[in-house]
Structures are given as C-alpha cells and as structure tokens.
Design a protein around this nucleic acid. Structure first.
Lengths: 356, 356
DNA sequence: AAAAACTCCGAAAAGCTTTTCGGCAAATCT
DNA sequence: AGATTTGCCGAAAAGCTTTTCGGAGTTTTT
C-alpha cells in the first residue's frame, strides 16, 4: 500500500461514496460534513463544542467523524491560529542525559499531547545549531528551549528571534534572556549539611573541571555550609576532571595527605564512583569510616555502586516544567528575563550514614 | 515585548509601510512581493529557484526577503504538499540511552534541518502511547519510528495507521510490520571470535534477564562461534539481571567453580562493570589473567572502567538512519516488512588483549 | 511588416480549518 | 394575525504558500 497522498485536482468521489474513507487520502472536515448532511462550518462547531449547534446535529456530526476516523489537520488549524502547540528543544547533550528529563518535564507541563516537542541535537556545532534554529522557525514553533551541554553560560541565540527562548541547565550569556538552572550553591550547602547531620566533621571535596561554573558554585555552597557549622574543608577543593579516573587519583592523594578524613563530597557521580573504588582499595569502609556523596543522581551509576551512592538530584524534570511554563507565559505577554535558580534535592542511599 | 501574533482583520499597513517588519507579525511572502514590486507567484518562484523568472527579478526578490528576514511558513507549504517533513519518534526508553542515538541517525539520514523529529516518551504506559500517536497524527507526521524499551517484541501499533511505521531496537510482534534491530546472534559471535583471537579458550558468559530475547540471541551466537572453533562454553550461560550486582555475584560463583576461566563475555556493560570489580577483588588481573567484554558500548561505563572496557556497539545511529530511509521509501511507495537485522561493531579497549 | 515564438509575470485556485455574520424558520409576544 | 425575538445553520473570508495557465511584452522568422 502506498502512503503517498494522491493529489487530485478535484475530489469528485461524491458519486460512488459508500461511507468508506477514500483510499490514500485522509478524510477532511468536508467529508465529515457531507456524510452528516451539514456544512463544514456546522461540523467544525459541532466537533469543537461551540455554541449554536443543536444537540441532535452535534451527535450526528460526531458519529460521522467517528465513522470516517476523522483526524483534524493541525496544520490548517495552526495556520489560522498562529500557534502550533509545538516547541523546539535544542541540545548539544550527546547522550541525552540532561535533555531527556527536561523534555519529559516540558511535556508534562501541558498534559501529554497538547504540546509536542521537536528534539534537535546540534552536537556542539554552532553551524548545525543555526541550521536547526532556522528549521524550527520554519516550522513555526511557539518557542525554544535550549539545553546547554555544560553548566557554563553559553552564547545567546540573540534577541531578534520571533519566538521566546528559555535557556536551561546552562544559562545564556545575555542577562536579557531568561535562564532556568539549578541552584548549585544551594546544592553544595545541601550536601554538606547532610554530611554534617551524619556526624561528619572532616569533610573533603573532590570535583571536576574548575572551568565549570557549576563546580565552583557547588564548592562555594560547601564552604558556606561548613563555615556556618564552625567547620572548614579538609584541604583545598580538589578540582580535576569529570571522570572516574580523576576520582581515584584524587582520593589516593587525599588519603595520604589527610588520613583522618571522614567524608568526601564529590562533584559528580562519575567522580564519586572513582572515589568509592579508591577508598575501598585503601581498606576503608564506606560509610563506616568514610561517607561519600555524589552529584547528578545518575541512576545507573548511583544505584549500581557498592554501596549505592547518596547523591544530589538536579530536578531536571522540574526545570523542564518551569521552562515550558515560562515559554507560554511569554507568549501570553508576560516575558521574564534573568537567571532563575531552582532547588536541588537530596537522594540518600547507602554511601552515607550516621557516624558511630 | 509580546510575542502574541496580533490577529488583524485586514492587514492594511500598506500606507505607512516603511520597509520594516510589522511588529508582532511574521512577514509573509506577500510582504516580500510587495517590497520587491512583484506578485506573490513570482516571489515564490524566485525564492524556490523555479524557472521563468528573470535573474534581475530573482535577485530583487531575494534582497527583499533578506531585508524582511522572511521565513517561509512551512505549515502552509505542508498543507499544500501533503507532506510535513516531520516524523514522530515514540519511545519508552526513560533515560534516552537508545533513543538519542537512533534519533541522531534519523536526523542524519536527510541532512540536518530537512526533517524534524518529534520525540515522545510514553514512559511505558500504553494509554499515554495512544495519546501520543493521536497527537502525532494530528500534526500530520510523515511517519513514526518506535523505539522499544527492551529488545523483546512489542505490541504493534496496528495496521490501520495512515502513515508508515518502523519499529527499532525492539521488533513488532506483527511480522507485517517493518522492524529494524541489531543482529544479536552475530554480535555474540563477534564477541567470542575476538576473545578467541586473543588466545582465550576457557570462556564464560554472564548475562542478564533470560526473558530478554536479546540475551538468548547473544548466547546463541556465542555458542555457535565456540562450536566453530572446536570449543565450548565454560559452564552454563549465567542468566540473571542487567545490573552490576549480578555481575559481581555471578563472578564470585564462577571463579569458585571454574578457577581456570580466562575470559568472560558479559551481556551488558553494567554486568561487565560488576564482573571487573569481582575479578580484581579475587586478585586476578584483567586482561592478564582474565579478559572481560561488555555489551552496549555505553561510553560512560566502558571508558571509565578500570581497565577500560572492550564492548560491542549496536550501531544505533545506523539503525536510526536505516529506519528513516525505510520510512521515506514507504512513503514513496516501496514499503517493506519483516525483520531486518543490522550488524554490530567491536570496540576494543583495555579489558581484552592477547594472552601471554 | 505581419506572424510566430519566446520570455516573464500575475491572477486564481488549491490545500483545510475556524470564525463571523447574515439569513431562514420556528417560537413568542402584542 | 402580524411583528419580533430566538435558535440553527451556511456562505464566505482569513491564514500562507505553491502551481497552473493565460496574457502581455519582446524578439525572431517568413
């Protein structure tokens, strides 16, 4: 069967019409109206629940639509309404680790099906990104959500775009744009406060690339929380890479230099996995001797660890929901701008526990 | 600035027109034509490179379009053409681990921007899935790509859909549908042949849930390859769960029962991570004493492992490309059906090496 | 110089839905 | 009974682009 929609000059299948769907051509409102014996205007009003249609007529139209399995053509509707109920999600996040939760949150914000999301992966290429933006504007998306590949500010798409844009995960460099990110400073506090609540006082911090604002922000929050408790970090913040390898290496050094450390807050779950390995290799028990915390709550890493890893969840779905709401608020005439930070959430597993 | 597209009864801004874009309303082809001093028909032909337009006229139109930053409205175009250049990707793959590569492959198959992909996550809920299908048909997608959440056959969406459907990763239960999956049997062979080429002869297989056809297929391929080499598996296939925990547990048993094993082929990278841990804990060297192979080539797990993990890549991007091509082949009147299996690819890292 | 052949351009229709507004018939009022 | 309101329905326009076909102007042919 060919799905090609046959283009017909004139749809003159009125003669042999038997109530069946014309093969290869999707039924239109006109078909429904004809079958129900009313005008297209009436059929439209009947199906959309508008006034000025008798109940009997309404049900007759509904029945006709059902019989033809009529699917209204959103294209025509959007063309008229000027809104498509469509947003573009632009990402460079190659494995979708951050994009997918944000996308799911955005879908949620409207109830499944009311809004559809175009997902475009620019693969870190500015040219490709421009391409995608252009294609999305062609398709008349109502707005754009940009998901940064790293947490650092990224170049703005510009102020000239005809649709609102929300930057998530990574903020835009332009403060006139709206950016919704997670509150990394508060997250750092949250982690340290948990460790302190577990009775830990000799806390170290091993994290990733110092070029990432998120790494610095988390460290800042950690410092602040320690200070509030009258404590201070064991050694300096150990910046490195977002990898297991760095976690292992940094831990070896740490345990040699500071043997009495009793907790390690890590900048990511990957780092934490390396830390866990190295701590155990040194014969220390987790969480008996040393508590370990991760960051990201990346299920497959955190739950599979031994012991399972306490972590900080960035509430990406909530960020997605907030982004979608902000987009439509902008469409309704209430645009916002600036940086909005949403709180993170603690997920406690086996790698942290009360001391003693 | 309000993005609301102002609805105007009549666009009578001809008087005070100054060449600027009307605020809040996207410029249309009519605007371009007016500015260039031609008819919309000519403007259309000029911009689309059709014949019967003088070069001078063409450039004048192009200039006008540029000046207004005209973006053609795909909705109107699609409405006319009956094709939208849009496909829906329906997944239940919560973390996007399989969907994203497939999506990227599909995007690739046409050059970025020519086709846009709606990504919908049904979250394993059949109702939500129906909802999404309906919404996608509303939006007149040209086709659907379904990404299964596990490799086992999944229920068909039915034969009554007005657009072609391709099932990927997991095949459809209905052989009348087209399914494109990776060749798990060949992948099992591939893995074992590599281990044999490394000089291993005492090979075990630890894998996941036996309810997964993929697990059984990979085991079948492994058996066949061993048999071809005049070898056989050390012990039985050890089925369990797709987790690190199972990898560790199974390895402990294995090393006790079969101390002279020199290679372990794992059904997933997660299992392999557990296996690596357990092997090292027993004091055996990888790959010196025991070679370990994973499956999935999940970068973050495979590359972060110690040593880094040799694995089998399912070529998901290639599957995505093939799916997109198949969709459009169906649209052009050449639908296919049945199960198509694509080859996998070996990714060699540090956990396997020649013996001795 | 008149006829034919080209070259460009524009009017109009098609694609599908929604909304407005006018009209017709029935019901209500004087 | 005649006038007025009420309730339903249909014609038509709007939203934007592409394609077809006819017409006007220009060049070439006889």
């Amino acid at each position: 069967m060919a799905y090609r929609r046959m283009r017909r000059r004139v749809a003159k299948n009125s003669g042999a019409r038997t109530g069946q769907v014309a093969r290869g051509r999707a039924p239109t409102l006109a078909d429904v109206a004809r079958l129900a014996g009313v005008s297209v205007a009436t059929a439209s009003k009947a199906l959309n629940g508008r006034d000025h249609v008798r109940a009997e007529t309404r049900s007759r139209v509904a029945e006709a639509a059902d019989q033809l399995s009529f699917i209204p053509n959103s294209l025509a509707r959007s063309l008229l309404a000027g809104r498509t109920g469509t947003v573009g999600l632009l990402t460079s996040d190659l494995d979708g680790r951050f994009s997918i939760p944000i996308l799911m949150g955005a879908e949620d914000a409207f109830g499944a099906g009311r809004v559809a999301v175009f997902l475009c992966d620019a693969r870190g290429d500015a040219i490709r990104e421009q391409h995608h933006v252009q294609a999305l504007l062609n398709r008349r998306v109502d707005g754009l959500i940009v998901v940064g590949s790293r947490t650092d500010p990224r170049p703005s798409l510009g102020r000239k775009l005809p649709v609102p844009v929300v930057y998530t995960y990574a903020p835009s460099e332009d403060p006139a744009d709206l950016s919704i990110v997670c509150d990394n400073v508060a997250a750092g506090r949250l982690a340290i406060e948990h460790l302190i609540a577990c009775g830990r006082t000799r806390i170290a911090h091993i994290t990733g690339d110092p070029d990432y604002g998120a790494a610095r922000d988390r460290a800042r929050g950690a410092h602040a929380a320690l200070k509030d408790a009258g404590l201070s970090l064991v050694g300096e913040v150990r910046y490195g890479a977002w990898s297991e390898g760095w976690g292992r290496a940094a831990t070896s050094m740490l345990l040699s230099q500071e043997p009495d450390v009793d907790a390690i807050f890590c900048g990511s779950d990957q780092v934490a996995r390396g830390v866990l390995d190295a701590v155990r290799e040194r014969g220390r028990d987790v969480p008996g001797d040393v508590a370990v915390m991760g960051f990201d709550n990346w299920e497959v890493l955190a739950a599979g660890a031994r012991p399972s890893l306490t972590s900080v969840d960035m509430n990406l779905e909530e960020i997605g929901r907030a982004a979608a709401r902000a987009l439509f608020a902008a469409l309704d005439g209430s645009p916002r701008s600036g940086l909005e930070a949403l709180p993170c959430r603690l997920v406690i597993r086996g790698s942290t526990a009360a001391l003693g």
